[in-house]
Amino acid sequence: MLDRSSKAGGSRVARALAAAGVVATLAAAHLAAPVPAGAAVSRSQLALRWAPIHYQDVDATGTHALGGRSDYIARIDFDGDLNGRNNWDRAGQTGTSLAAHVYYSVVETSTHWYITYLFFHPRDWADHPFFETEHENDGEGVLFAIERDGSTYGVLRAAVTVAHSDFYSYTPAGSTWTDGRENIDGALQFQASPHDAFEHPVTAQEAQGHGLKAYPQYAINGDGLVYYPSTVAETPSDGNDRDVRYRLVDIFAADGLWAQRSTPSLFAGLGTFAGDASGDCGSGTWSCSTNSANAPWGWDDGNDVPARGEIASDPAKLSAEYFTIPGGVARTYTYNPYASAAAALAEAARTAPRTVD
């Protein structure tokens, strides 16, 4: 499951090439191959098309920041194993890879595609002693709802992001979706990528706690990274690298995250990553909590109607609750691997204690 691709100072090289006037040529060479006319788009192509350009604020202050590396996104097995209880310590060790990866899942109805993206950090950390809790592992993300309008990739109508234990909803300019049970929190912006031919939605995460919202509700404040969707994984050259490509990883792959959902070294419960208080987690801060990060089927806004995990496992329901949608949405799934465990998910959501990410 490992990919140890690295960037080797790519952002500095890119700036030098820009000065020489050759960046446009390089960008053209990296354009995503178009889908042939009339061909059905694959789920991986859909995920790559709509994957966000992602702004990550970086804080290098304090020992828990690891010089900014604690704010780099990574694979869950960045250290070579599927043990969630050693990630805090190994994030600071040499020989581990913080090459950029983002997890995704696609579920389908006859009217919409729903794509969930998970951004993982080995640490949720703080740099001051008062009122802040750290924990091992951190999983935040976003759901995109895409209408199947007959075009190759459809049209993106709305997004719901995960910032700790709260969800925030957004619509792009021109969307037909409006306020539902929840008020829309802002506009979803788009930005052209230098690595393909598309404009992508733009998301952002804060440093330390890594809450995720639509850009610029979070933004880079000083040092920061700009991640671009791609088919390769790059490691930032430093904490202020503005061109880092990330690789997508399918949650539903044969050996993927969903297949590992009952692995006790990785999950303490359904949708809850295993994490302990080893090492210096909590040292100099308020505390270090355990088992406090979630996979998409564990995400929850406890004040809202959708149950725990339904942002990923039943996104049509969540969309119908959050938005007013002309014509509604189909509620029967034509593809939804989460549904194979729907009863277990529902029971676990009903009985599980609330976790804070």
Rank of each mutant, 00 (worst) to 15 (best):
S97L: 06
R15V: 09
G95N: 08
A197H: 03
R350S: 11
P353S: 15
V22R: 14
Y103A: 12
D127T: 01
P326F: 06
G275L: 09
D238A: 01
A159C: 15
G10M: 06
L270I: 10
Q189M: 06
S319C: 10
I220F: 12
F131C: 11
P337C: 14
H101W: 07
A39S: 13
G269W: 07
W297N: 02
A159K: 06
A33L: 13
E140D: 15
G239E: 04
Y338H: 06
A29V: 09
S278K: 13
F131A: 13
L212N: 14
Y228R: 14
D179L: 10
T332F: 09
R157T: 06
A254P: 01
D276Y: 08
P216A: 12
V22L: 14
A33N: 12
Y153A: 15
L225F: 02
I76N: 03
K213P: 02
T334W: 01
S230K: 03
T355G: 05
Q217Y: 06
A293L: 07
G10Q: 11
Q205N: 13
A320T: 02
F190E: 07
V329F: 03
H195N: 09
V226S: 11
Y227T: 03
Y117F: 14
A295H: 04
S313K: 12
A14G: 04
P264K: 10
E199C: 00
T133E: 08
S193H: 08
A173W: 03
A8W: 07
V22Q: 05
F130M: 06
V23K: 09
V249A: 15
D301G: 03
D124R: 00
S110R: 13
D300A: 13
P122C: 08
R148Y: 04
G209H: 07
P229M: 09
E108L: 15
D280M: 01
P326Q: 06
E234F: 09
V102T: 05
G68I: 07
G62V: 11
G282Y: 00
V142G: 09
A51N: 08
I220W: 05
A163P: 00
E108K: 11
D304N: 12
V35C: 12
D357Q: 15
L31W: 06
G211S: 07
C281S: 00
G211V: 05
I76E: 01
G68Y: 08
F120E: 00
Y103E: 07
D196V: 11
E310I: 06
L46N: 02
A27P: 08
A254Q: 12
E140Y: 05
D185Y: 03
N137C: 14
H30D: 11
F120L: 07
T178F: 04
G9S: 04
A295G: 05
T111K: 13
H128I: 00
A320S: 14
T272L: 07
N291G: 12
L266S: 13
T285Q: 14
N87Y: 04
S42P: 09
E108C: 11
L225R: 02
A259G: 11
Y335S: 13
E321W: 04
S97D: 13
L212C: 12
Y228F: 14
Q45P: 03
I76G: 03
P216R: 14
E321A: 14
W177F: 15
D241Y: 04
T63P: 00
D124L: 02
E108H: 11
L98A: 07
D241L: 04
Y218W: 05
F119V: 12
H121P: 00
V249W: 03
H164P: 02
P306I: 07
V226Q: 12
V232I: 11
